[in-house]
């Protein structure tokens, strides 16, 4: 069909779909991540929200928390969008395209947690929002440095080993994904998991984990 510089990109390629300059691909590694993301996206679509019960300590009294249907619909929408963004980030074959998908994961993550009325959770969502915004600087900056120093953004060219990608660009990419995926800040994630709506909150964790696995592959292969 057309000539790609390599047929062996992170293992034997299983399927290639070209969108102009952006050639998405499935290798065993990315296909495994893709399937994983797909399973959780389907789970987000079909699952019902968690119903939380608060117990009054030292007595028999308890009260159940009501799930607002509007909130439920909004969170489900965000979780599905987050799943789709993760799917895209897993299979894309272009560095800048990957950074865009990562930003989308970041913003949907904010959306999932920002829907609550709880001041505490909103505050945490706000702080994550600021970090996600900041993260777009190293993320896009890393992609721009890759483009400037190698003259291409396609992973098919970059993975060959013929191109020397500066270390700072790789560090920027990892730093950016850290910010978007909030992955190293798990301590503070407890603030978010305190809120109800388990299957959708789960999407935050799954997406950041998968993003990390993917950026590791990109940085190592470049």
């Amino acid at each position: 069909m057309f000539n790609l510089p390599t047929t062996n990109i992170g293992g034997p390629e299983l399927f290639v779909l070209e969108f102009g300059d952006i050639v998405t691909y499935f290798s065993p590694y990315t296909a495994a991540l893709f399937v994983f993301a797909l399973i959780f996206t389907v789970l987000a679509i079909v699952s019902r929200p968690e119903r939380q019960v608060d117990f009054a300590f030292g007595g028999d009294a308890y009260y159940t928390k009501v799930v607002d249907p509007d909130l439920l619909r909004f969170q489900r929408f965000m979780a599905i969008a987050c799943g789709l963004a993760t799917l895209g980030a897993m299979v894309t074959g272009d560095v800048f395209n990957f950074t865009l998908f990562a930003s989308m994961v970041g913003i949907t993550n904010i959306g999932i947690v920002a829907a609550y009325r709880n001041r505490h959770v909103l505050n945490a969502a706000f702080q994550y929002g600021i970090v996600a915004m900041l993260a777009s600087i190293p993320l896009f900056g890393g992609a721009a440095i890759v483009l400037a120093s190698t003259g291409t953004l396609s992973m098919w060219e970059l993975f060959g080993g013929a191109m020397a990608v500066p270390l700072i660009a790789k560090a920027f990419l990892v730093l950016g994904v850290m910010g978007e995926g909030m992955a190293p800040f798990y301590i503070a994630k407890a603030e978010i998991t305190r809120a109800q709506g388990a299957p959708f909150i789960l999407m935050v964790h799954v997406s950041s984990l998968l993003l990390f696995l993917r950026v590791t592959e990109i940085v190592i292969s470049m």
């Binding site: 969108f19 102009g20 300059d21 952006i22 998405t24 895209g88 800048f96 395209n97 865009l100 989308m104």
Partner: peptide, 9 residues
């Protein structure tokens, strides 16, 4: 055209 997927995202 060539980088249409970027714009879609």
């Amino acid at each position: 055209n060539t980088r249409g997927l970027d714009t879609v995202v």
